[in-house]
Simulated assay, not measured.
Amino acid sequence: MNYEIISEVKNGTLTRNTNLIKDAIQTFEGKQIVIKIEKAKKKRSTPQNSYLWGVVVPIVQNTLKEVGHTLTKDQTHDLLKLKFLKETLIVDESTGETIERIKSTTELSTSQMMDYFAGIREWIFDFFGVTIPEPNQDLTLTLE
C-alpha cells in the first residue's frame, strides 16, 4: 500500500495532515518502510485536460485518419502516450534487466504536460505538416 499525503513545512515542522501521516505510518507497524520526501508538483490542470481531449487528440486522430488509420479518441490518446510517455524502469541493476511502462497523463505536472504537448505538436508538424494551435492561441473557425 502506498500513501501520498501533502503537507507544508514551516519553521521545520509540518503544518497540515500530520494525523494522516501518523495513521499511514501506523499501518506499517513491524515492517520496514521507505519515506520519500519531495517538493509537491502541481498536477495537470483541467484546462490542459480540455486542450488535450478537445484540440490535440482530435487533430491527431483526424490526421491519422487522412493517411488511412482510423482510430477512436481513446486509441489515439493511447498511441500518443506510447510515443511520448514511455519510460524504462531498471528492475535489477546487477543484471541490467529493465521493463517499460507507459505513464498516464494524470501523473504529469503542469510543466510536464506542456512538454508533452510540445512534443506532439513538433511530431505532427514534422511528419504530417499539420499545425496544432498552442493552448492559449486565439482561433477563428470559418465554416463554408
Rank of each mutant, 00 (worst) to 15 (best):
H77R: 07
G96K: 06
A24D: 14
V60N: 00
A118M: 13
T63Y: 08
L64G: 03
Q75C: 03
T18I: 15
A118S: 15
V56R: 01
D23G: 14
F128K: 12
L71I: 02
G129Q: 03
T76P: 08
L79M: 13
V57A: 09
L143M: 11
E93T: 09
T13D: 11
L52A: 08
T131H: 10
T140W: 03
G30D: 08
T95H: 08
G54F: 04
L108G: 02
T72Y: 05
V130N: 03
T72L: 13
K86Y: 07
F117T: 01
E134C: 05
D23R: 15
K65N: 14
F128W: 08
W53S: 10
Q112Y: 10
L79Q: 04
Y51G: 06
I102S: 09
H77Y: 12
E4Q: 09
T95D: 06
Q26H: 03
W123G: 07
K22M: 15
G96W: 08
K41R: 14
K41C: 08
L89F: 01
N19M: 15
E93G: 02
E97C: 05
Y116G: 13
Q75F: 02
T13A: 13
R121H: 03
E107V: 12
Q137N: 09
V56A: 03
A40Y: 14
E87G: 10
E97I: 06
I5F: 10
T46M: 04
V67M: 01
N19L: 15
R16Y: 03
S45F: 07
V34S: 12
R121P: 00
K83P: 01
S45Y: 09
K81Y: 11
L108P: 01
P58T: 00
N2W: 11
Q26E: 05
L82C: 00
L79I: 02
T18G: 05
M1G: 14
I6G: 11
P58C: 05
D74E: 11
S111W: 01
E8P: 01
E93A: 13
F125E: 12
I6A: 13
E38F: 09
I6L: 13
G129L: 00
G12A: 02
T76Q: 02
G30E: 05
L82N: 04
I5K: 07
I99V: 14
F127V: 12
V130Y: 04
K86P: 04
N136T: 12
T106W: 09
F125S: 12
P135T: 07
T46E: 09
T18K: 13
S94Y: 05
D115G: 15
I25Y: 00
I90G: 02
E144V: 14
H69D: 02
W53T: 11
V130S: 04
F127G: 14
G54T: 01
S104C: 10
L85I: 09
Y3C: 11
E100G: 08
